[in-house]
Design a protein around this nucleic acid. Sequence first.
DNA 1: GTAGGACTTCGAGTGCACTCGAAGGCAAGC
DNA 2: GCTTGCCTTCGAGTGCACTCGAAGTCCTAC
Lengths: 152, 152
Amino acid sequence: MSVTTDRLRDLIHTTQGELPPLTAELVRDLEVPDRMAIAEVAALTGVSAHTLRYYERIGLVDVPRDAAGRRVYDRDAVGRVVFITRLRDSDMPIAAIARYVELVKQGPETEPERLALLEAHREDILHRLRDLQGALAVVDYKITTYGGACGT
Amino acid sequence: MSVTTDRLRDLIHTTQGELPPLTAELVRDLEVPDRMAIAEVAALTGVSAHTLRYYERIGLVDVPRDAAGRRVYDRDAVGRVVFITRLRDSDMPIAAIARYVELVKQGPETEPERLALLEAHREDILHRLRDLQGALAVVDYKITTYGGACGT
DNA sequence: GTAGGACTTCGAGTGCACTCGAAGGCAAGC
DNA sequence: GCTTGCCTTCGAGTGCACTCGAAGTCCTAC
């Protein structure tokens, strides 16, 4: 793993990008090697090789091959993996991601439905954030009142 | 379902309690019926009767019974269910909750370990919040740039 | 030329958290 | 007294997202 990809892995996992809050785009714009083996992608993204193959098998990413049939991830494929990872991290079901990818394959006339999918997922994320903040408040309260009366 | 329990269900599901950011405690302090049937608890908490039985079966809550063997949830039991729900909502694994409950049963000398468990979970929640905010940024970006070039 | 290691496909296995269904008990209302 | 409906236990089934293992291929280094 080069210094470059190390730095990139950090960038990819940084949530607070300054101006473009991106990741998939980052991968395409910055100098990631354009021909990566599956193990390198796994190291870069934190997704296991097994899971990367699984994602391809179910149609979430298309990955080019070399003459011997080995996967060669280009920047595009890596970008897609990173994007999928973001969606999974925020609990978008595989089925919804698959639907989204299918729409992209079908062409530009599916953009409204894609947008609707993303907006629905956005609502899910906001809901999830509220839940988590509520839970955090409860846990914080429990922590700060420890030594107090409770037995729950 | 009475007006009281309707109001309470709202309170329970409100994330932004003003001063005490509580829920389990709320249940104990406010006037929830002290003898609730499983279906009532299900309606109040949003947890299915099946799941409530499951929680009891695996030792997460103890629930008193009436003469005929039917579950009668007192305020305490309801409070525990609500607390468990908060932990589950924030993805604490059942096993960790079970461990916590076991510690509570063992008595006050286990408080340090309980506290450690909660603090670890607190870190998990914070981590999760960061992930979600990152994902939100990515999704928002995708949404606002739709109609743009991207095909990912 | 051969050992090592990273890769391939395929199908099957795992873990978690429910979720369901069957078979039966019991109290209330008609 | 019988239906209705909510309750009980128990074990089995489900769905999701991986995760693994076996058997084989291919390039590199010695």
